[in-house]
Amino acid sequence: MTAPRTTLALLLFAPLAFFAAFFLAPMAVVALSSLTTDEGGPTFAHYARILFDQYHWDVLWVTFRIALATTALCLLIGFPLAWYLVRIVRWRSWRRACVILIVVPLFTSNIVRSFGWMVLLGRTGLVNQGLMGMGLTERPIRFLGTETGILIGMVYILMPFVVLSVGNALAKIDTALEDASADLGVGPARTFWFVTLPLCLPGAVSGAIMVFALAVSAYVTPALLSGGQITVFSMLIFQQYSSVFDFHYGGALSVTLLVLTLILVTLAGRIGERGRRAA
């Protein structure tokens, strides 16, 4: 028998070495270059350029507005769908088919899914044809190149995460708790609000965090559905690395996005934790 310490070192050596070399080191290079000039001297100029420029704040605001709206809509649509699948559907095969339908989009590239919406949301696309056919609008509505268009695509792409994590939480709730609440004379709405909802809150929060983190850093969907009209933060980063080649400034942008994402994810985690404890 080898000593536990040796075994532990053997088990962890390769994964940690790999992450140090190809994850921490590249990130450190980016962080370092964001703080240096071309000559290698230390500087805060790249961050000052981001902090004191209204344009960056505008882009950040658009990015976070889209991410927040995406998260809210995903919860708003995803929650009823999860509820339907867990509580209303009685026929197991249909539920199974629905789960497959929800997972298939997750297994298809963002490109493919955004492309589908590019086709659907175009001037002569099915959505506009449908709206005009129903007499809801006279002229085709412009979706591509608007925040609405981006939102439709983002919610579409990220909703399965919410459905799966809320559904999982709902499926694990012991319905005896709700029965007990009903037996004590509490109405269904109050039972939902004080018993069921707190119990599935952790699932909803973890789904929402995932959606939010992915939405803030999304690149493909906004790039395809914005038609060059709307800029989100990840596009700024991509520009710097692919066409401007300013690695210092690009690095500062990357670090900014990274730090903001981490702060928000941690915050949301805290809120979820508090909800769990209250429950």
């Binding site: 962890l12 994964p15 940690l16 992450f19 190809f22 994850f23 921490l24 080191a25 590249p26 990130m27 290079v29 980016v30 270059s33 965090i209 995932m210 983190a213 803030v216 850093s217 690149y219 990840s234 980063i237 991509f238 710097q240 690395y241 690695f247 690009g250 690095g251 990357s254 996005l257 990274l258 994402t261 981490l262 994810v265």
Partner: peptide, 24 residues
């Protein structure tokens, strides 16, 4: 260690991609 190994799940891929290009 556990959060380090799990962190790519929530980190922006764009940032990691850019970092690997620059590092590379």
């Amino acid at each position: 260690v556990s959060s380090l190994l799990m962190s790519p799940l929530v980190l922006p891929y764009v940032v990691l991609g850019a970092a690997l290009l620059q590092f590379g």
